[in-house]
Design a binder for these strands. Structure first.
Lengths: 189, 189
DNA sequence: TATCCATGAGACATATATGTCTCATTTGAG
DNA sequence: CTCAAATGAGACATATATGTCTCATGGATA
């Protein structure tokens, strides 16, 4: 059914991720070069810069959801799910990252997906609160922001070879759960 | 001594901060418009886009250092200094933020200043470790990354009116010190 | 082998950003 | 008031990015 060979498309997407992550203003010619592909081919696949960006956002979201689903599996504990998802997202943080710059979020469908993902995170955090993992007095959204921020921090450390992925994930999880957990609050009404 | 009136320059810098924060690729014409200034005037003051970016970076760094110095004052406790600095930086986070995008960091002088600031933060964290605020087993750089990340998270919450500046600062400090503190580790060797 | 189709190279028109320059006007200081 | 400096408007040349189009090539398939 594919009327166009997939390899060029994939190469362009990969090159776009790598190049735009470092310089969001890079030209399409640069992307095409990096992908080892003619500039015309890039336009055949994506039509416009905007279409390419939308495809990148879609691809990144799919990758993220696949990784999270695979990591969480059929874990019953929401707390465990959040911990595993955190570790799984760290290696993907860079791609998610450059997409968070809003020029991409102009697209309504993409923004809607982003909002839905954030809502899902908040729901999971509420469940973990019920499991006693987080202090109910801390706003759920602050926990979510911290969750995302620590993933980014962990990715930076791993990128710079300051920590292994496992070490970074453990530190991030420790920071999150001790910082926002219920430990030491048992005495409070 | 000023051969050029300062008001235009300041208006341009302010407009550039606001506009570039939202869209780093904005044109200089857009900046000039936003500043209520002719495009030629912008070039008279800054010569080139690159020069403008360097001026923005310099200005932002000065603002940050001034705010931190004012907040820290003659506080003797390094822990307290870090807490006060955190609260002081939150309102400035957006400006620091867009400067972290690397096109600006190409400038060697600016990058050097950035590295020096990070080193100063790490030194302060080491001192706070000595004061018992942070777990000595946690890498200092992880604490620094967490510090920066939580400032950004706090700024986002304040920007969206989800929290007041004070609430956000308290939550960030709690997350940092409980998450990476020595509480509950007393029993360990 | 013959055919189809994605591709690469590159021409082309268009749009936009950048930086320079000129000139008339305004503003502020003396 | 007078003059010098800063400014705004806009022309101008240049560079670069974008998107479209054409045509020849090469590989895969029937």
């Amino acid at each position: 059914m594919d009327t166009i060979r997939p390899t060029s498309r994939d190469a362009i997407l990969e090159a776009a991720f790598q190049t735009f992550s470092k310089r969001p203003g890079a030209s399409l010619a640069e992307i095409a070069d990096h992908a080892g592909v003619g500039r015309a081919t890039l336009h055949r696949h994506f039509g416009s810069r905007e279409a390419l960006m939308a495809a990148l956002a879609q691809t990144a979201r799919d990758e993220l959801n696949d990784a999270v689903d695979a990591a969480v599996g059929n874990t019953v504990s929401h707390t465990d799910g959040l911990r595993r998802a955190l570790a799984a997202i760290i290696p993907l943080a860079e791609r998610q990252w450059f997409l968070a710059q809003e020029p991409v979020l102009q697209n309504p469908a993409i923004e809607a997906a982003y909002v839905a993902d954030q809502a899902a995170l908040c729901t999971a955090i509420e469940e973990a609160k019920a499991e006693g993992t987080f202090d109910p007095n801390v706003p759920t959204r602050w926990i979510a922001e911290t969750y995302d921020s620590l993933i980014f921090a962990a990715w930076e450390m791993v990128r710079d070879d300051a920590l292994t992925a496992d070490q970074a994930a453990d530190l991030a999880w420790r920071t999150l759960t001790r910082g926002l957990g219920t430990e030491g609050l048992a005495g409070k009404t």
